[in-house]
Simulated scan of single mutants.
Amino acid sequence: MLRTSLKMADHAAKKLKTSHISIGTHNGHFHADEALAVYMLRLLPTYTSAELIRTRDLALLETCQIVVDVGGIYDASINRYDHHQRTFDTVFPGRPTKLSSAGLVYMHFGKQIIAQQLGKSEDAQEVEVIWNKVYENFIEAVDANDNGISVYDPKGIAAAGLEKRFRDGGNSLGAMVSRLNPNWNDSSPSDPIEAQGAEDAKFEVASTRMGEEFLRDLEYFTKAWLPARAIVHTAYAKRFEYDSSGRTLVFAGQSVPWKDHLYDLESQSKGAGEVVYVLYPERQTSDSKWRIQAVPVNKDSFESRKPLPEAWRGVRDDKLDEVTGIPGGVFVHAAGFIGGNNTFDGALSMAKKALEL
């Protein structure tokens, strides 16, 4: 056993000599948080070409320039980012969820990553906005999953007598990473160095997949969500031009990601009333058909604040015109959350009538 450990330590030491920068994390069963943490670090110039050392040997970890998810130390001044200590209770600013190694790395290096993406300084307002948004939208769930924190209070769920209608655990990113680990009965090389190399290769696949999802989220918020903010703000300011109560929001040029921005605006404008329907063209052409969409009660809900009238639901074309009394009807979804009309005037008339019913 000692000979095997010395052999692996010597092999790791030789690897370190080929790279002056190294990232350390634990070997064995890997998880989504350290897989993502390693990927995020590699987005930074300092660690782009860093050697990855997966071990629990503290002597080897001491040789690494940065260590995540192992070592029993959280100290940013020496680049140690473990969260398994009994006393660890660090959370992201303004959020309640205890951090994992992913959250720790993101909290300390996320602004640098975002600044690179936007081509701005780390103290730019846009960087701060995206830093918070990506944490809430993506990283926090990874932290919660690794720390065994449920989305809902288990006691509250039990008291309400609620049960899941189906199993959804296998659809999470954490489950995806777990499936990439070797199975208990998979064959493994007898040589410990080769066995560790095979395990490391699987970890690299997991890290890449987590990183791809992170980058998709980051690119959405920097390239689509952020540019949409000004458009939503303009439409929100003009909403009384179309509806005296301000309950109809119109995007005259094109549809953009609006839900997050709308909820933020409403929270900042307390007492101004809630938007009920959003109108937007299907295409950026003068002859485009128009959609009317009911605003959900929150971003992740299928429930609308005020669905389109029940009598309209599941009805199309001429029959829809007859039911609504408004020409140009295209359809209304059976669930009442969205509908369409051939013209803007028709869609606006549908919104006004739906508000009255």
Rank of each mutant, 00 (worst) to 15 (best):
M1Y: 07
L2W: 09
L6F: 13
D10C: 13
H11E: 12
K14W: 15
H20M: 10
S22T: 13
G24T: 09
T25M: 09
N27K: 12
G28M: 09
D33G: 05
D33T: 11
A35W: 01
A35L: 03
A37L: 05
P45L: 12
Y47I: 04
T48Q: 14
S49F: 09
E51N: 06
I53R: 01
I53A: 00
T55E: 03
D57R: 11
D57A: 11
L58Y: 07
C64L: 02
C64P: 01
V70L: 02
G72D: 04
Y74D: 08
S77R: 07
S77C: 10
Q85K: 15
R86P: 05
F88S: 04
P93C: 10
P96T: 06
L99M: 11
L99F: 10
A102I: 05
Y106D: 09
M107N: 03
G110N: 00
I113C: 00
I114W: 00
A115I: 06
Q117N: 05
G119R: 06
S121K: 10
E128S: 12
W131S: 00
K133C: 05
V134G: 01
V134A: 02
V134W: 01
E136N: 14
N137W: 06
V142Y: 00
D143P: 09
A144S: 12
A144L: 08
V151S: 15
P154C: 13
K155T: 15
G156Q: 14
A159P: 04
A159I: 14
G161C: 12
R165D: 15
G169H: 10
L173C: 05
G174F: 02
A175K: 13
S187T: 07
S187V: 07
P192R: 13
P192K: 13
E194C: 12
A195R: 09
Q196T: 08
D200N: 14
F203A: 02
T208E: 07
T208Y: 07
L215Q: 09
L218Y: 00
E219I: 08
Y220D: 03
A228M: 07
H233G: 08
H233R: 12
Y236H: 08
R239A: 02
S245W: 12
G246F: 04
R247E: 07
R247Y: 05
L249Q: 04
V250M: 04
G253I: 06
S255C: 15
P257N: 11
K259V: 09
D260L: 04
H261Y: 06
S267L: 04
G273Q: 11
E274L: 11
P281V: 04
Q284P: 06
D287G: 02
I292Y: 02
V295L: 09
P296N: 08
N298L: 15
N298D: 15
K299N: 13
E303G: 07
P309T: 10
E310V: 10
D317H: 14
L320Y: 06
T324E: 07
V332A: 02
F337Q: 04
D345F: 07
M350V: 05
E356W: 10
